[in-house]
C-alpha cells in the first residue's frame, strides 16, 4: 500500500511550529517511515493534487491566502491546524484590536496602500475552512502532532484536552504562581503542554487558547484579592486572547 501523502502549508506565522517538526530528529525519521511528504516548503519542493493529511500552519490575513487555504481543504482528506497562529489566530490577532488601515500604516509606513500589501483582520484556520484536528501551542509540542498523526493513521479519534493547564500543573507538583503573587492564565487555558511554563517557574500566558467554556469572570473576580487589577489580567490575555470568541 502506498504511504499516505502529507502536505505542510504555511500562512502568516513565524514558522516556528514547522521548525519543531524539523527538529524532531529521530521521531522525524519515524514519521517519514509512515507518511510521504509531498509538499513541504521548509524542507522540500514536491507537490501533489491530493493529500491524505494537510498540516496547516499560520493565520489567514489576506484574501488570496483564504483562497489558497480553500484549495488546500478541497484537496485534503484531513486538515490539521498546527500551532496557535492556525488554531486560534495567536499573536496575529493582536492586530484585530485596531483598525486594519492603522495597522497597515504602523507596519508598512508609506507603502501601506500598495495593493500587494493589503491585509485583512487575522483569522484562525477553522474560521475559514473546516478543520479536523488542532494541535495547539506557540510553539507546538511535536510529540502531540505525531500522536495525532498516528491516531489518524490508525483510524482512532485523538483526544484533545478540554481541561485547564492547572490539571497538568498540579500533576507536575508545581507551586501555584498565584501563591507567588503572579497572574497565571492556567485556569482558563486548554491543557496539553504538560504545564510547560509553570513547570519552569513562569505563569501560563495562554498560548493553547481557552478551554471550551472558560470562566473569565471568575479569573477577573479574584484579581483584587491577589493585589492585582483587572488591567493586569487583561494585559496578560491580550497576547493569545485577542479577538477570541470568549472575552472579558
Amino acid at each position: 500500500m502506498a504511504k499516505p501523502k502529507i502536505g505542510i502549508f504555511d500562512f502568516a506565522c513565524c514558522e516556528g511550529c514547522q521548525l519543531q517538526i524539523v527538529n524532531m530528529e529521530e521521531d522525524l525519521l519515524n514519521l517519514l517511515a509512515l507518511v510521504d511528504p509531498v509538499e513541504w516548503r521548509e524542507a522540500m519542493s514536491d507537490q501533489s493534487d491530493h493529500y491524505d493529511i494537510a498540516i496547516v500552519e499560520g493565520s489567514i490575513t489576506r484574501d488570496e491566502d483564504a483562497e489558497r487555504l480553500r484549495k488546500v481543504r478541497e484537496s485534503a482528506d484531513y486538515v490539521i491546524a498546527l500551532g496557535a497562529c492556525a488554531t486560534i489566530g495567536g499573536v496575529n490577532k493582536l492586530q484585530n484590536n485596531f483598525a486594519i488601515e492603522d495597522v497597515q500604516v504602523m507596519v508598512y509606513g508609506d507603502a501601506a496602500n500598495m495593493p500587494h500589501l493589503a491585509s485583512t483582520p487575522a483569522q484562525a484556520i477553522h474560521e475559514v475552512v473546516k478543520v479536523d484536528y488542532m494541535v495547539h501551542g506557540c510553539p507546538i509540542d511535536a510529540h502531540e502532532l505525531t500522536h495525532v498523526v498516528r491516531c489518524l493513521l490508525a483510524g482512532k479519534q485523538p483526544v484533545m484536552p478540554d481541561y485547564p493547564v492547572c490539571v497538568e500543573c498540579k500533576m507536575k507538583e508545581n507551586g501555584c504562581r498565584y501563591e507567588y503573587g503572579e497572574v497565571c492564565l492556567g485556569p482558563v487555558t486548554r491543557a496539553g503542554c504538560d504545564a510547560r511554563c509553570p513547570s519552569n517557574g513562569f505563569w501560563c500566558f495562554g498560548c493553547r487558547g481557552y478551554v471550551d467554556d472558560p470562566n473569565l469572570e471568575a479569573a477577573a473576580s479574584v484579581m483584587e484579592q491577589y493585589g492585582k487589577t483587572l488591567d493586569d489580567l487583561k494585559s496578560k490575555m491580550a497576547l493569545f486572547g485577542s479577538a477570541q470568541e470568549h472575552k472579558l
Partner: peptide
C-alpha cells in the same frame, strides 16, 4: 459561579 472546573481541588 467562581469555579474554573480546573480540578486542582481533586488533584
Amino acid at each position: 459561579e467562581l469555579c474554573h472546573s480546573c480540578g486542582s481541588c481533586n488533584l
